[in-house]
Structures are given as C-alpha cells and as structure tokens.
Simulated scan of single mutants.
Amino acid sequence: MRTALVTGSAGFIGYHLCARLLADGWRVVGIDAMTDYYEVALKDSRLAMLMEHDTFAPVKARIETPGVLHDLFETHRPAAVIHLAAQAGVRYSIENPESYVEANLIGTFRLLEAMRAFPPAHSLLASTSSAYGANTQMPYAETMQADHQMSFYAATKKSNEVMAHSYAHLYNLPITMFRFFTVYGPWGRPDMALFKFTKAILNDEPIDVYNHGDMKRDFTYVTDLVDGILRLIEAVPGSDGVEGDSLSPVAPHRIVNIGNSNSVQLLDYIEAIEAATGRTAEKNMMPMQPGDVPATWADASLLQHLTQYKPKTQVTEGVANFVAWYRDYYNV
C-alpha cells in the first residue's frame, strides 16, 4: 500500500482529495493546522469523515513549525506528496500579508527541505491561476511568462513555483506545480463567492457583485480538480516532454493548469445559483477589488496530453450540487 502525504487535509480541496486517495487504496497521512481563518466546525466535519478510514493518519500542526514535516517524512516515507496547505484568499492577503509569508513561503520551504531529506517519487504542489497576474492573452498557457502578479497571495504562490524549481534542479526532485482555476463545489470555503452568494440569497440578503458584474472565471468543479491531481501523480516529470509542455530544461519540474477550459461570466454564474435556490438575488454592483483580475481562462491541453483527462462538469450541475449540499448541511 502506497503512502501519500497531503498538507491541508481538512481543507476544501484537501478533504476531497484525501477521500479519493483513501477510496483508491492509498494510506494517507494528512496534516492540517485547523486554523480559524474560517469556521473550524466545517473543517472538523470534513476531518471526522476522513477519520472513519483506518488508513488515514491525521496530524494537527502548522507546516511552518521547524521539524514537523521532517519528522513526518522520516516516519512515513511518503511515495507521493500533495501540498495544498496555504493561506488562501486574494483580499485577505492585503489585510494580513504576514500570514502568507508564514504559511506559503516558510511552510513550503519546510516542505522542500523535508523532501530533500526523504525524497518522494513525485511531489505535487498547489499554485493558482492568480499567478498569471496581469496577462491579458487568453486562454492562459503554462508556457506564458507570468511575472506581474496582482496580489500578495499570487506573489507567494509564484514564489513557491520558483522555490520548487530550484530544489527540483539541485536535488533531482520530481515536482509538478498545478495551477487551479476558481475551484467550487460541496464542502467549499465560506469566504468563496459561491458560498457567500448562496448563503445571502437563501437569507434574502443582497450580494456584492464586483466590477459591476463584468468578470469572467474558469470555474472548476472540485471533483474534476481531484481527478486531474490523481492522474498527475502518475505523470512524473522526467526527460521526455509532450506537446505544449512546460517541462524545465534543467530540472524534473513542470507547471500544469487544471481548469475547465471555459470562461463563464460572473452574472451567468449568479443565474445558476438563482436557478438552484429558486430565488432571485438582490445585487449590489461594486467596483473592482484591489488585487483582483477581470478574467481567467485555462488552456488545459497539457493536462490532457499528460493524463488523457479533461475536466467536464458544467457550472449549472456543479452549482446545483453545492446548493443541495449547503441546504442539507445547514438545514436550510
């Protein structure tokens, strides 16, 4: 039985990924700090479901704490590492940038050092579509230059990509960075648009619509993202590339988009929520928020070339699934 180490295991994406790994026969070591950035009860509920599996080993700790990851790697010797732990959120990075330094920069450094000491067969580290920053050419391809990040959150994630490349080169560590695009679905975070919009609409409260609704996102359903990650575990970066590859010429390191390859207008997304809730939203039209970008759109052809997989869930289906989960979880 292979062992996977998942950081951020009680998070939105981490929970879904761990559940799938366990169902697929992996032993999973999950580390999560269970911070109060959003309601801890939601994390507790996710963790409780994972702990029903005998092959899941939970660890409550901060990844930036010296020695924590080193000791976990020494004890469990994971074959695969999926690094999801991070301080998330574009807007919160303006309010509390130091938390992003600690979790995203120092935490990822601790992970890279542990990987250097006890090399896994493959490590997959989460990045973000926000790394494309001020780029206006779309769809975004991994081979594009991405040097003008628009938020401190994005800057820390782009820094993670560069840090990981140096370790991949220096220590021959196979590393895939995956840039995900506006992930949504059941068990999502309360600070994300879908959660906030659904909660407000069901409570007959207005919603804040930024840039007066003139925004587009490549919304990616969480199980599609997980499917992509699982397939990438087996696509270990080596010396042979594929069409459109971002494989480094000097390291076993590549960057892969995981997105739906379909940019959806924000107002259409809100319409899908209205249809799923059976209610009409009262919209407060607001200006663009600092650090935000007007549009994202993934070119996911590299993912398809590497794994023969393409995300497929449509927004109407994914939103309806989230609303059904929300009503059930909160007894609405």
Rank of each mutant, 00 (worst) to 15 (best):
T3F: 09
L5K: 04
G8H: 00
F12Y: 14
F12V: 12
L17Y: 06
C18L: 05
R20Q: 15
R20T: 09
D24Y: 00
R27A: 12
V29S: 00
Y37Q: 08
E39A: 13
K43D: 01
S45R: 13
L50D: 03
T55E: 15
K60M: 12
A61Q: 09
F73A: 07
E74W: 12
T75I: 09
V81Y: 07
V81Q: 06
H83G: 07
I106G: 06
G107I: 02
L112D: 09
T128P: 07
Y132P: 00
G133L: 11
Q137M: 05
Q145D: 08
D147A: 13
Q149R: 14
Y153Q: 10
H165N: 09
H169W: 06
H169F: 03
L170D: 12
Y171V: 02
L173E: 06
R179T: 00
T182I: 04
V183T: 08
R189Y: 04
D191T: 07
M192L: 14
A193R: 14
K196W: 06
A200G: 11
A200H: 14
I201W: 02
I207Q: 06
D208P: 04
V209T: 06
H212V: 04
M215N: 10
M215W: 02
R217G: 02
F219D: 04
Y221R: 00
D227W: 04
G228K: 03
L230Y: 06
E234P: 01
A235F: 05
G238N: 07
D240P: 00
G244N: 14
S248T: 07
V250C: 10
P252L: 02
H253P: 10
I255D: 01
N262W: 06
V264T: 14
Q265L: 14
L267Q: 04
D268E: 10
E271T: 06
E274T: 01
A275N: 04
A276Q: 01
A276G: 11
G278L: 04
A281S: 01
E282S: 07
N284W: 02
D292R: 06
A295T: 03
T296Y: 13
D299C: 11
A300H: 08
L303Y: 01
Q304I: 01
Q314F: 12
E317L: 14
E317D: 15
F322M: 03
F322W: 03
A324C: 07
Y326Q: 05
R327N: 10
R327K: 13
Y329M: 03
